[in-house]
């Protein structure tokens, strides 16, 4: 029996609907991702009180590319032979932050445009024995099938 776990702890949730987890300063409201700092990154704020918050689950494509050659370790390819995948940099409007991620299975650069809408999904990055390691990905929103609009 296989179990599915996030490839990294504390960066995203895996129950439906999944979200990225960021930090937000309780003093000035600045967001941060990855959620690794325990103080506010704003140089005008000395707060050390950062709360964990879910980030917007839809965003706008800032740019996109793909990986036609297998990236070197520590990247682990799920497929042999290697299957190229796409990468998108996505701007979240409320948080005013751009977050990179792979593009969901079945989609490539031809499905994306600067300014187009994508939504967050969680999919397998690799399988390690009985454990499926999940990662966040960006999936293009086909018109008429809008994601969870805020």
């Amino acid at each position: 029996m296989t179990t599915a776990v996030p490839v990294i702890d504390g960066w995203f949730t895996i129950d439906e609907p999944p979200t990225l987890l960021g930090r937000r300063c309780t003093e000035c409201g600045t967001y941060q991702f990855p959620p690794t700092g325990s103080w506010c990154p704003n140089p005008g704020c000395i707060s050390e009180d950062m709360e964990t918050v879910p980030l917007s689950a839809t965003g706008t494509v800032w740019s996109y590319t793909d990986a036609q050659y297998q990236p070197p370790p520590p990247y682990v390819s799920r497929n042999d032979p290697y299957q190229p995948f796409a990468i998108a940099a996505v701007e979240l409007e409320r948080e005013q932050i751009i977050i990179l991620g792979q593009v969901a299975d079945g989609f490539g650069v031809g499905d994306l445009r600067v300014g187009s809408t994508v939504e967050l999904v969680v999919e397998p990055l690799e399988t390690d024995g009985e454990t499926v390691k999940l990662v966040w990905r960006w999936r293009p929103v086909v018109s008429g099938e809008a994601g969870d609009a805020r």
């Binding site: 490839v7 990294i8 590319t65 990236p71 990179l100 600067v114 300014g115 990055l125």
Partner: peptide, 28 residues
Amino acid sequence: DDPDWLRFRLIGATNPAFFGLYARRRMD
């Protein structure tokens, strides 16, 4: 805890991937 390691591990984002992002922006 190393952002340079994590971008390969989690995304497979090589240096050329970043260059590709910048290039695509010029196109679009």
